[in-house]
């Protein structure tokens, strides 16, 4: 009974989070969690093309967004998304220089997150590990940030 009460409270709290606008059809609302600081910006892109993922450089149709970072979580919405197979890449650009900084040119110093929580080991995940099917309905997505250094 106690557990049910706590669960209910958490659901209510989530509904009243600032900026938690419900998505409409053709929209994917993304909640980025586990941000470690409010420094810099959160950059995200959504692409349907495997080549160039996770930077979405090759894809003129990629949807990109930049929001100021916040402690814990931020939310944004991709709009006018056509049905298809997509993957989302998120970068916590803490120094705001527009790229993922690396230590000794290897290990990422800034946080990253991918749809389906695709894992990073010796390199960024492949498109297929992060891809999901989108049918055009109002949709939400949660992406957890991870920090190597």
């Amino acid at each position: 009974m106690n557990r049910i009460a706590v669960f209910g409270l958490a659901a209510v709290a989530a509904a009243f989070l600032p900026g938690a606008t419900p998505p409409k059809a053709g929209e994917i609302a993304v909640t980025v969690t586990d941000l470690r600081s409010a420094k810099g910006a959160v950059r995200a892109c959504l692409t349907s093309r495997a080549d160039g993922f996770p930077r979405c450089r090759q894809d003129a149709a990629a949807l990109e967004t930049v929001v100021p970072a916040a402690n814990g979580r931020v939310q944004f919405i991709f709009t006018n998304v056509k049905p298809g197979r997509y993957a989302v890449a998120v970068l916590h650009d803490e120094n705001g220089n527009g790229k993922a900084d690396r230590a000794l040119g290897m290990m990422p110093k800034e946080g990253f997150g991918f749809s389906r929580d695709a894992k990073v080991t010796t390199g960024p995940p492949k498109f297929d590990a992060a891809a999901f099917d989108y049918g055009g309905e109002a949709s939400t997505l949660s992406i957890r940030m991870r920090y190597m250094l």
């Binding site: 080991t121 991870r146 920090y147 190597m148 250094l149």
Partner: peptide, 15 residues
């Protein structure tokens, strides 16, 4: 095995 099976106790998240 680390990369493909998730074996070993090598971790990549600093936290």
């Amino acid at each position: 095995a680390w990369q493909n099976l998730g074996w070993t106790k090598i971790y990549s998240e600093i936290g």
